[in-house]
Nucleic acid binder design. Structure first.
Lengths: 341, 341
DNA sequence: CTGATCGGTTACAACGTTGTAACGAGCAAG
DNA sequence: CTTGCTCGTTACAACGTTGTAACCGATCAG
C-alpha cells in the first residue's frame, strides 16, 4: 500500500511527527534532518493521505460546481474554464447537474454532497428571489447568473442589461428597425431573460423606436429546439421584422435554421445576433454575431472569490462582481466572411 | 457545527458506538434502542462525516473522469451522461481535463488527485499503444475510446469499424460514388481515425469502389475549424466528390459550412455524414446525418463496470465491451426536413 | 441451583494526519 | 558552576468513523 508518515520516519530514522514538521515547513528543524527526511520521502514516493488530511483540517481540496446541464454549450464551456482555473489553484472540481429543477437545486445546497467540497459555485435556474433564504448556508457559496439578486452571498454575473442594449444597438446601427426578440419569459423582471429584454427595450427607447409586443416571442428553455419553435411561431404571426435578437446563441441558431429553411437571406433580409459566444457561433452558416459576456472572466473571478472565502477567516461583506462584455461581429449581421483559425 | 455520533449518542442516551451499530444495521440492537437513536438522528439532522468515513473505509464515494476537454461537445455530452449515471449510484464525479496532452494524461494516472476518487474513467487521446504499461495501476481504471487496445484494464468502446462502414454504405446506397473522408490521421491504425478510415475502406471494397488517396484529408484535432480547413484543402485539390464523411460531427459541420459558402447544395450536390450524433447535428442547416455511437450506453456501461471493480474484491479478468451503434438519417443525406421536438 | 449461551451494549483500537505541549540537550549569562 | 533560555525533536491528543473484542445480564439446559 501507499507509504505513510510512519514509514517515512522509519526510513529517515526520526519520529513520524518530525516528518510532519518537515512537510509543513515548520521552523525548528535541523537542515540535516530535513534533508534526510526529504530523501526518505522521495525514496518511498510518499504522498500525504487526503482523507486523513481532510479529517484533520476540515478541508477537502475540492469545490462543487452546480449547473443545469453540461449538454448546454454555455455551461460546458463554463465548466471547462472553471476546471482550468481551479486546477491552477490546485483544487479539483466536482460537478453536479440540477437540470434547472428547483427541487434539485435546493438539494444541491443542502445535500449530503456538500461535505465533499469546501464550497460551491452555484448557477441556479429554477430558484427565484423567494428562495433567497435557502442561500443562507454555512459553507462558502458563490452565485452565478441572474436568478437571484440581493441574496446573502457573493455573486458573479454579467452586464446583462448593458450587453443586451449594446446588441440591440448594433442591429439598429446596421439600419434595422423591426427587431424581434426570441427567448423572453413573460413577466420576468430578473433572470437573464428579463434583464436582456430590459436592455433591448432601453435601446429601442434611446433610438426613438416603439416597443412592439408582437415582435417578442417567449421560449422557456433555451435550447436550439426552442429557438426553432419560437421562430416558427413568429413567422406564423405574420408580422414584419428585419432582425432577430436571440437571448442566447442556441436560441439564435435554432431560429437561424428556420429562417434559412424559409428562404430568408441572412443578413440581407434578416440580421441575427445571439448571446454567449459559444464556439459553434463561429461556424454556423452564416456565422453568428453575438455578445461575448466574458465567460472566461466570470469563471476566473468566481473561482477566486470562492477560494478567498474558503481561505478567509473573517466574514467579509458580500460582493457582487460583473464581468465586462463585448460584441463579436460576424456574418449574421453583415461582417465579412472569414473561416479558419 | 455539524452533529457527530457522540452528540447523537448523548441525546439518545446510549454509547456513541451503539449509534454506529444502528446506522450500519448491525444485528443485536434492540428495536426500542434503535427507535430512540433514529429519533435523535432526525432531531439533530445528523450526517456521517465523509472524511472520517473515507479515512476509515478507504473509500471516497467519488470517481474521476479524465477527458480531453469539455468544450468538445462529444465529451460534454459524455460527461453529462456519466454524471447522471453516477448520481443514480450515489457517486459523485470529479472531472479532469487533459487537453489530449500525453504528459497530462500520464499525470492523470499517477497524480495526487487519484487519492480523491475510488477509480478513474479515462479517455486518452495523446497516449498510444506504447504507453499501455502506464495503465498498469493499482486503482480501478476503465478505459474509454480507441487509443489503446489490449491494455491491462477494462475497456469500453464503440463499434468504430462497423459503424464507419455502415456510414459509408449509407452514402453508397444513396448513389454516391466519390466519397471524401475528413479527419484522417495518416498512418494511424488504431485510434478513432484509423479505425473509422478502415471501416470506410471496407465499405468501398465491398461495393467494388476504388480507394482514392486524393479523397482523404487529414485533420489533427477534430474541432469545427479543422473540418473547415480540411474541406478548403479538399476543394483546392480540385478532385471531384459527391459525398463527405466527417470522422466526427464537428469536422462534418465545419466542412458543411465551407461547402455552403462555395454554393454547393447539400445534399443534392454533396451528401454529408458525421459521427457522434451531438445535439447540434439536429439543428445545423441542413441537419446532419450521423452515427449514434451509443454514447449513453457507453457512459452507463463504463460507470457500472468501474463501480463493479471498485466494489469487487476478487480480481476479475479484464473485459472489453462495445456499445451498439445506429445511423441517424437527416437532411444532409436526403432525409425529409423536420424541425422541432 | 449452577454453568453455558446468547442478546444487547460498550470499550478499545485504528485509519493517517496535524496542532500543542512537553522534553532533553546545548549554550550563554549571571 | 548553576540558572535560564533556545533549538531540535518527540509525545500526546484529537478529527469522526467503524471493526473487533469484551462485557454484562438474563435465559435456558442440565
Amino acid at each position: 500500500m501507499a507509504a505513510t508518515l510512519r514509514d517515512v520516519a522509519q526510513v529517515a530514522g526520526v519520529s513520524f511527527k518530525t516528518v510532519s514538521n518537515v512537510i509543513h515547513n515548520h521552523p525548528h528543524v535541523a537542515p540535516e534532518t530535513r534533508a534526510r527526511v526529504m530523501a526518505a520521502i522521495d525514496q518511498l514516493g510518499y504522498r500525504a493521505n487526503r482523507s486523513a488530511r481532510s479529517l484533520r483540517s476540515g478541508r477537502t481540496g475540492a469545490i462543487g460546481l452546480a449547473v443545469p446541464e453540461l449538454s448546454l454549450a454555455y455551461f460546458a464551456e463554463l465548466a471547462d474554464e472553471v476546471i482550468t482555473v481551479a486546477d491552477a489553484h490546485g483544487v479539483v472540481v466536482l460537478i453536479e447537474q440540477t437540470g434547472g429543477d428547483r427541487r434539485r437545486e435546493l438539494e444541491a445546497l443542502s445535500g449530503d454532497r456538500r461535505q465533499m467540497s469546501d464550497g460551491l459555485l452555484f448557477s441556479p435556474l429554477g430558484l427565484g428571489s423567494d428562495d433567497a433564504a435557502a442561500l443562507q448556508v454555512d459553507f462558502p457559496l458563490v452565485l452565478l447568473g441572474e436568478r437571484i439578486f440581493d441574496g446573502p452571498v457573493d455573486h458573479v454575473t454579467m452586464e446583462n442589461v448593458e450587453a443586451a442594449r449594446a446588441a440591440t444597438e448594433h442591429l439598429i446601427a446596421g439600419g434595422r428597425r423591426r427587431i424581434a426578440v426570441i427567448g423572453a419569459h413573460e413577466g420576468e423582471r430578473i433572470g437573464s431573460a428579463g434583464l436582456r429584454v430590459a436592455g433591448y427595450r432601453a435601446a429601442l427607447e434611446a433610438h426613438g423606436l416603439d416597443y412592439d409586443d408582437s415582435l417578442v416571442v417567449d421560449a422557456g428553455p433555451w435550447h436550439r429546439v426552442n429557438g426553432a419553435e419560437a421562430m416558427q411561431q413568429l413567422l406564423a404571426r405574420g408580422v414584419a421584422f428585419d432582425a432577430v435578437f436571440g437571448l442566447n446563441d442556441e436560441l439564435a441558431l435554432g431560429a437561424l435554421r428556420v429562417l434559412r429553411m424559409h428562404e430568408f437571406r441572412v443578413p440581407q433580409d434578416v440580421a441575427i445576433i445571439g448571446f454567449d459566444d459559444i464556439d459553434e457561433a463561429k461556424y454556423s452558416l452564416p456565422s453568428l454575431t453575438t455578445v461575448d459576456p466574458g465567460r472566461r472572466e466570470i469563471a476566473r473571478i468566481a473561482v477566486e472569490l470562492l477560494l478567498e472565502r474558503i481561505g478567509g477567516s473573517a466574514p467579509a461583506p458580500r460582493r457582487e462582481l460583473r464581468s465586462p462584455f463585448r460584441i463579436v461581429q460576424r456574418e449574421s449581421t453583415g461582417a465579412p466572411v472569414r473561416v479558419g483559425a
